[in-house]
Design a protein around this nucleic acid. Sequence first.
DNA 1: GTCTATATGTAGATAGAC
DNA 2: GTCTATCTACATATAGAC
Lengths: 224, 224
Amino acid sequence: MTAVDAPPRKRKRAPSKRSLETRARILDAAERLFAQNGFEGASMRDIAAEAGVPVALVNFHGGAKEALFATVVARRADVLAQHRLQALDAARASGAPLDLAVLLGCFIRPYLALAASGEPQWTAYARLIAHVSADERWRPISERCFDPTAAVFVEELSGLFPGQDTQRLAAAFVFSISAMLSLATSRWRIEAMAGASGQPAEADAWADFLIGFCEGGFRSALGA
Amino acid sequence: MTAVDAPPRKRKRAPSKRSLETRARILDAAERLFAQNGFEGASMRDIAAEAGVPVALVNFHGGAKEALFATVVARRADVLAQHRLQALDAARASGAPLDLAVLLGCFIRPYLALAASGEPQWTAYARLIAHVSADERWRPISERCFDPTAAVFVEELSGLFPGQDTQRLAAAFVFSISAMLSLATSRWRIEAMAGASGQPAEADAWADFLIGFCEGGFRSALGA
DNA sequence: GTCTATATGTAGATAGAC
DNA sequence: GTCTATCTACATATAGAC
């Protein structure tokens, strides 16, 4: 919903229905392959094949490869930011105190909910973010897509720990985000470590568990 | 120290001194570029240029690109595993109880110590691991290089939380690992979020802070 | 808007002289 | 062990017909 959203250039009039579908198929395909193989690991040809269109159409709708990547990341980032801020507004409106668990929940739950009960693309998205975070080259994307929302939450959190060093607070928040992403990207690793034991475990239980972990982390590191 | 360690094939006799230096320069260069740009983002040509040798030598000493990548990851993984297991042995020998903070410290401190007071390559290594973790294709590398040590620590930790679901325990451990990696790879993000405020903060303080966070997370999520 | 054909660069890998 | 030269494949991107 922010900037990067126009197909080729300045749209003169409404694009055709077919055009929009083609564009969506291309972005979906790009998202899958970028998440799976990273930026260089996914070629424009792969993306075209995955979308079932000729290569030239990928360039036409997505622009150059880097722009396509940025568009793909921004598309879901905007949806996610919206959900998180709405959850925060709802929590504020409810009148209940904005305590640590509630704040962390407003940030963490929207993503886990989308990943669990929605399309599988949202699970892949965590892997995409992991690629973005692991690669310094994409730092501008992080700053544009994720930092504004993060700033809102850090601001709220700092109200709960008055006088605490902001850098420590931000660090605890970054730890929490990375734990959240690892839950999405490394479930296989968790299951491998646990071996045969352990129940299947449903999505809600995982969310509560993760939030409990982060909450305890905050309190322990920053003081109750 | 494990398997992947032979230069070209089966070494017939001792390699020359110059050969070893060349090989080391190539591996160092590959490590830097793989960490910075990922597997596909770093070309064999880039690596050769960084090492100051012709391309053919990279193939000669490192083998095919995938083998080179695996070698680079394994090399430091082995050193790291050794430090961690030594720290664990030392803690056991000290007679003091192996409580949560000590165990987490044995896993976390060796890496942070290497990253802080050693070569800058160790900081880059966290980014390399982030790439490995973000990409399912490298799962075999994770299993071979990291899982054995992780299993030892999960086993120890499970002794502190008797009767707890192993999967939850493994999850808390994975959260801790990802927080540790994020401290290395995303310090810039933490500082950006904190804005102007916040002291510089030294390495030891960060280690204590991180371990405090993870300890609180474990206790809160799994029960004291 | 869509597709075929192609221009231009760079990738990984190796052959073979030294 | 080292290096030059080169093979082959595939990358991104676009021109131009429909």
